[in-house]
Simulated scan of single mutants.
Amino acid sequence: MSEDSASAARRQATGALEQAIRPARNRSLGDEVYDALARLIGSGELGSGSRLPSEGELCRLFAVSRPVVRKALTQLREDGMIVSRKGAGSFVSARAAGGPRGLEDPEKQLGTMLQALEFRCSIEPDAAYYAAIRRGPRELAGIAAALDDFDRLEHEPARRRVDMAFHRSIAEAARNDHYARALDVIDYDIEIGITLARHLSQLGQEERRTAIFAEHRAIYLGIEAQDPAAAREAMLRHLEYSRVRVTARGEEILRRVRGGD
């Protein structure tokens, strides 16, 4: 798409927003912003791949504060309707047509998740390796903060976001922009994984959380000790265990979707 075409598409999306919404006033502001954007996405006014206006522009259009807009965008991300790309903004998900959705084509989604994990197994162990060599005090503190947040937070969607923040902080600590960009490439597939995970049984959730924290901590300790081999091995082991967990979860979902007990 040319720059002129992209600009025209953004102007069209902004025009649609201006026509579709009224300034949010005294009721639940975040819900009103969410509902208006969800309607535009569901109707196709904001089509697949469309870039949403900036947070500042959304604040102006809806006459609300930035925290209200951020709350609505967070909910849209959790519902799989939009994806956010670092430094680029928020975009309508490739599979968001029809508004908030439940589990669609679970077998295909499971395959997508497993492919994303396969890709991550090929890059993230090396990112951990170089993070152990190159990290400074600031990078190590960022990894530690994400690790602590994962252990502290009780809300499952928040933990999933912190999980990704932990992995991204390691990619950034490697001091090679390609590792962080590689995670951006599969950002949408990770969002699919969040949607898929939301449909899982709550049974065993605490056990899974404890296991994931222990795996994360092993990665952190390798990086803290500046032991690249240990960091690489811990990351690979974590991703392999994740693949086992995803497969088991996916099989549970497929069984339920197909009507099994």
Rank of each mutant, 00 (worst) to 15 (best):
A214M: 07
F213V: 12
R217K: 11
R25N: 12
G47M: 03
E191M: 05
N26V: 14
A225V: 05
Q75L: 10
F213Y: 13
D227R: 06
L46C: 03
D149P: 02
A225K: 12
L61F: 09
R258W: 09
M113S: 03
G15E: 14
R217I: 05
A158V: 05
S43K: 08
Y188A: 12
R258F: 07
S242L: 15
A127N: 03
L46V: 05
R134A: 13
R208T: 13
R208Y: 06
D261L: 08
F119K: 02
F213Q: 05
R168G: 04
Y34N: 00
K71R: 15
E206H: 06
G250T: 05
D177V: 06
N26D: 11
L221A: 08
L239Y: 02
A234L: 00
R159I: 04
T195G: 10
A116G: 02
R66G: 09
H178Q: 10
F213N: 02
A230T: 10
D227C: 00
D35N: 08
G260V: 02
R209F: 07
L254V: 14
D227V: 01
R134Y: 08
L46H: 04
G222N: 01
Q202L: 12
E104V: 15
M235P: 06
L29S: 11
N176I: 13
V244Y: 06
L58N: 11
A97N: 10
Q19M: 14
R161K: 12
D31C: 00
S54V: 06
I123K: 05
F150M: 09
Y241F: 09
R70E: 15
A171Y: 01
A171C: 15
I253G: 02
G222Q: 00
A38F: 06
Y188Q: 10
G222R: 01
R237S: 15
L37A: 03
L17C: 09
D148Q: 11
V246H: 04
L117Y: 03
D79G: 08
A94W: 01
R138H: 08
S84P: 02
A128K: 05
K86C: 06
R198E: 15
R77D: 06
R135Q: 14
D184H: 01
A127M: 08
D79P: 07
R249Y: 11
T112H: 00
A141W: 00
L236G: 04
A234Q: 07
R10H: 13
L117P: 02
R175S: 10
L76Q: 02
F213M: 06
L114I: 14
M164L: 09
R258H: 09
R85I: 15
I223K: 02
E215A: 09
A197Q: 12
R39F: 04
S84V: 09
A197W: 10
F213H: 09
L153D: 12
D187M: 05
D227N: 11
V244P: 01
M1C: 02
A211H: 07
I186L: 03
S169L: 04
I123M: 14
A132L: 05
E172A: 12
S122P: 01
P100H: 03
S43Q: 13
R198C: 04
D148R: 12
A63Q: 15
E18H: 09
E57P: 03
I170E: 09
H216M: 15
G102P: 07
P67V: 08
E55V: 14
R138E: 15
E233W: 04
